[in-house]
Nucleic acid binder design. Structure first.
Lengths: 235, 235
DNA sequence: AAAACTCTGTCGCGTCCGCGACATTCCGCC
DNA sequence: GGCGGAATGTCGCGGACGCGACAGAGTTTT
């Protein structure tokens, strides 16, 4: 669902080399300005996209302004496979954060290629499978874990993908405001801030604008382990 | 994710007839007693199952006893495709509610068949796609909709699949305690009960043990429409 | 370098909803 | 047809967390 770039191991997943070439031959390009919509919720499924440059946010906005931030895409990620498969409309808005550029693989051409090379289905289905697993785990977490634990979990998850090792610890430099962190968790900015601050006071992390330095990942993991398996049960 | 039976239109999805026959030739059968585990969370992915008789619940239980009820399967449904695709462990427990019987399609055999007939991937991928859409909508709903609306939505959704038309209205006779309804929504039994009772007082529904009669679906839909698009915004 | 914005920290109130408790009603079973 | 267990209705307390408000700190723009 999100942080797909490094999960895939490499650029545009592990397609066989020849298939990658075929994909490329179908593609045109499209440049996006800051805040530009790649597609909107309920748009028809016209193409599959491959992110070349920049960052794209996949989210859903309620009419009252609340927003669920479902995924962040980084260069190397595919975007929009779900609609590719079932032909149904988009489930989310896809918006460029800053300048970005994508490959555009029109659905009809892509389907034709897939029919010719059905083994490619396997690769794309594998992506769907990963996304489904992620979505399912989000649902579980939303029900089982209190905000603090969801936040810890997400931070560690993000760190696995975006974290850079530094002498002081794992640096998460993704220029993401706490408000967006909240939107990933279905939580308010204030609650996220409060929790992060608490951890900072304990020396587990250090905060900066749009940046988090995880000084002691083990403490966060410890939180999850002790509370996750047996959430609070005092007799 | 759940209520897949009638969504698929027919028994074991719309497989080509010859493919269905091939599937059948791979299958053995397994009978399950009430409460018996078909598989458990984290079990390895050994087979794909097809439900022949009875009902199976797909759920996740936290160590403290709380439970998320992710899906109910009815005869004609496939069970366990996700692990079929990626080979990773089960995400949920699958438990028989009452006596049940399933086809068992061992994964290795099935993968061999799929390699021989790659076009079948398309059918199975379509199922993954539907499940992903459902999961995504659950996530959105959990964040955007208050309990009452999620409940209304779920009731209508269940009615589409299980509802029987009667002179008094849509009858939902699925022998599902309100507690389980709650577990579908990440809500407590008490809250579900309260809301249902309220609707009953207004004459929208009628309640019975494990049964709901929807007298006036339009009212429930109305709830969703007025509140869904623009949830409460008093100046 | 100052202005305009964005991001963050912090209170405090209010609400939603979980949870324990208990009475009541209904079902399945012997 | 009566008995035990399960399902339901109902209060009320308490906790988690959203939300408005505002101050202060940092960043971007011109």
């Amino acid at each position: 669902m999100h942080t797909q770039a490094k999960d895939d191991g490499g650029l545009f997943l592990d397609l066989p080399a020849d298939a990658a070439a075929q994909f490329a031959s179908l593609a045109s390009r499209r440049a996006l300005g800051d805040g530009e919509l790649l597609y909107a919720r309920n748009d028809p499924a016209e193409a599959l996209y491959g992110l070349i440059r920049g960052r794209i946010r996949l989210s859903n906005v309620a009419p009252d302004g609340r927003e669920v931030l479902m995924a962040l895409f980084e260069p190397g990620d595919w975007i929009g496979e779900l609609s590719l498969f079932d032909g149904l409309p988009r489930t989310h808005d896809a918006v460029a954060m800053g300048e970005a550029e994508v490959f555009v693989l029109p659905r009809p051409k892509l389907l034709a290629l897939l029919d010719a090379e059905p083994r490619l289905y396997r690769h794309l289905a594998a992506r769907l499978a990963r996304q489904l697993r992620l979505a399912l785990s989000y649902i579980d977490d939303a029900v089982f874990l209190p905000l603090a634990l969801r936040l810890a979990k997400r931070l560690l998850q993000l760190a696995k993908v975006y974290g850079q090792d530094t002498p002081q610890g794992l640096l998460l430099d993704l220029h993401l405001p706490q408000e967006d962190l909240g939107r990933m968790l279905g939580a308010s900015r204030q609650s996220v801030s409060k929790e992060l601050r608490q951890w900072e006071k304990r020396g587990w992390i250090a905060l900066d604008y749009g940046r988090v330095l995880i000084r002691d990942p083990a403490q966060l993991r410890h939180l999850l382990e002790q509370a996750g398996p047996a959430p609070r049960r005092a007799p």
